[in-house]
Design a protein around this nucleic acid. Structure first.
Lengths: 127, 127
DNA sequence: CCTTGACTTAGAGTGCGCTCGAAGTTTTAG
DNA sequence: CTAAAACTTCGAGCGCACTCTAAGTCAAGG
């Protein structure tokens, strides 16, 4: 009886675009370049699983922290290679984290400088 | 006697590139698109003043906080129009500041999410 | 004086990350 | 059954911010 309800729910590309804010065009693009590997209905239409959506969200986080597409490709290539690559993936993410932290600090510094300029008055060109 | 030492020191494009970390190519590009207005020696070679360098540094701060070139062009067009535009410039910088603060927060959130993933382990694709 | 290297301009080329268009199939609403 | 909307692939196009090339001029050291 209690056959597990696998095959749970899947979503069309439009639904995923809607849920994630990533356009259908971009989702297809991500698949083309190897960031996603989405299953198909018999018709050929994509069927996104919950996992696929999680991955889209994760890609969004990497992109919003300015990880280059190349590196994201590398990351998911490692994922595709299986669990033996976990160390390397971890390493990649940690390196990224360091970079992001650095940029965060630089951003704060530049913002401070701009705010000083704002405070001192709106114009001219003194630093 | 105490004639003020105006005409103080000027710098070649290579010196400015060196001081600021902005390439000579990029400095010429910035001038072309109206971000800089650099004087010339009789030979035609650019002579950067201290003010010019300050401006280059300020452009760097705006760029490093991802202000689009278009907006920087707008800013310096206002500067060129004179002091009557100070309010508008201030407004532009303040709007930018708000944007940067927002991005800063988003960046921190995305970084948190990535760090959670790192903490939980290196791989898989759960969010 | 002569060479070496830095400078000039105008315009073309590059890399990134999408974004769009065309032509055709499939699904869905009426 | 039909029309409209949504999907497919493939390839081309775009906007941004540089970055480089070519062809020529200028400047400083030996």
């Amino acid at each position: 009886m209690s056959a597990i309800a696998l095959q749970s729910k899947t979503f069309t590309i439009a639904e995923v675009a809607d849920k994630t804010g990533v356009s259908a065009h971009t989702l297809r693009y991500y698949e083309r370049i190897g960031l996603l590997d989405v299953g198909r209905h018999t018709s050929g239409h994509r069927r996104f699983t919950g996992q696929d959506i999680d991955r889209v969200v994760f890609i969004g986080r990497l992109r919003s922290t300015a990880m280059p597409i190349r590196e994201i490709q590398r990351y998911f290539a490692l994922v595709a290679e299986g669990p033996t690559t976990e160390d390397e993936r971890l390493c990649l993410l940690q390196a990224h984290r360091v970079g992001v932290r650095t940029r965060l600090r630089e951003l704060e510094l530049a913002l401070d400088a701009i705010e000083h300029k704002i405070a001192r008055y709106g114009g001219s060109c003194a630093p």
